[in-house]
Amino acid sequence: MDATTPLVLAVFLLAGVTKGVIGMGLPTIAMGLLVLVMPPVEAAAILLVPSLVTNVWQLLAGPDVRSLLRRLWSMMAAVTVGTFVGIRLLVADDSGVANMALGVALAAYGILGLLGRTFQVKERHEAWASPLVGFATGITTGATGVFVIPAVPYLQSLGLAKNHLIQALGLSFTVSTLALGAALYGHGEVRLTFATPAILALLASLVGMHVGRFVRDRLEPDTFRKVFFACLLLLGLYSAFAALA
């Protein structure tokens, strides 16, 4: 057993619980902690399997996959393109500034949400907003290995019900994970040596996610909203401070 194995298990157990509760947080927590003991590109490679499996699970467990695909296909296509553009920053191990900016943006959005100052995007604007948000999310994914900004604020602004929002996040994160994996593979950064830690990370994530979903199903809508934005704030602060380490 590698010396980092206990850390990998603990990190992905915590990340899985967070994801189970609010539908996100796995890549943010995992990348933020793992980069303290390994290069960001290696952390991103280990993240691929648990991220893909948990996001597909989250996507398929939701109420209506087809309608989400019809509504968000242009955003998903743009995410893919943007990821291949931004991957050079992650491969170059130059993601510190990007991660800090990501954390600050996430924390700011969490604060605004807790204050009740969320914004709404009307459906007639989605035709041009979705691909722009998707491309920006792809750039962030490629540069940091984290796929939350600006996808999460945008999807939350669409006024989706709790379970539809969780499913939309699952769709966005699934596409982002696939695009990140393809981009890393194209740069020769996906290797068999990552297989064992990736499988262990997956098992820990699934256990954590099951626990988190149990908690989420018992939250009232208003409580869920507060927990959602509080977690965004904490994740953002953590990501920003971890980038300074």
Rank of each mutant, 00 (worst) to 15 (best):
P39R: 03
I46A: 10
R225G: 09
A168S: 15
L102K: 06
A143P: 01
V97F: 10
T223G: 11
I111G: 09
A136T: 07
L26N: 13
L89D: 10
G82L: 02
P40I: 04
V227G: 09
V211R: 00
G236R: 05
V211H: 00
A92M: 05
T193W: 03
A10R: 10
A107N: 10
M31R: 09
R66G: 15
I139P: 00
T118R: 15
V146H: 08
L232T: 04
M100L: 12
P150A: 02
I87T: 04
G110P: 10
R191K: 14
V21I: 15
L89K: 10
L52Y: 10
E123R: 14
V53R: 10
L7N: 05
F12I: 03
A143Y: 05
L68C: 00
M38D: 12
L200N: 09
S95N: 12
H187S: 04
L69N: 06
G181L: 04
A198R: 04
G145W: 09
P63D: 08
G96I: 01
L72A: 07
P221W: 00
G236N: 07
T4P: 01
M76T: 11
F194I: 02
L178F: 13
L171P: 12
A108P: 03
A45W: 02
F84E: 05
V11K: 11
P27K: 09
G86T: 01
I199K: 08
L234I: 10
Y238R: 00
A129S: 14
H125S: 15
V37D: 12
Q167R: 04
L237N: 07
S95E: 07
V175E: 12
D94T: 08
T140N: 13
V17R: 02
G116E: 11
D2K: 04
V8K: 05
V8Y: 02
A92T: 03
I29P: 13
G113E: 14
L115E: 14
W128S: 08
F84K: 06
L158F: 01
V53Y: 08
Y238C: 01
P197M: 07
F119W: 15
A183G: 03
M209W: 01
M31C: 09
A201R: 06
V104C: 04
H125I: 01
L178A: 11
S157D: 07
F194G: 08
I46F: 02
L33K: 08
I87C: 05
M100V: 06
L180T: 04
A179D: 06
P197S: 11
R218S: 03
A108C: 13
V146I: 15
L9F: 08
G103E: 09
L89Q: 14
G134R: 02
V35P: 02
L68T: 01
V85L: 07
A45C: 06
S51C: 05
V146Y: 07
R124T: 13
E123I: 03
L160C: 02
K162W: 00
L192G: 13
A143T: 07
T80Y: 10
M24Q: 12
H164N: 08
V211P: 00
V49T: 13
G82Y: 01
A182T: 09
R88F: 04
F84V: 04
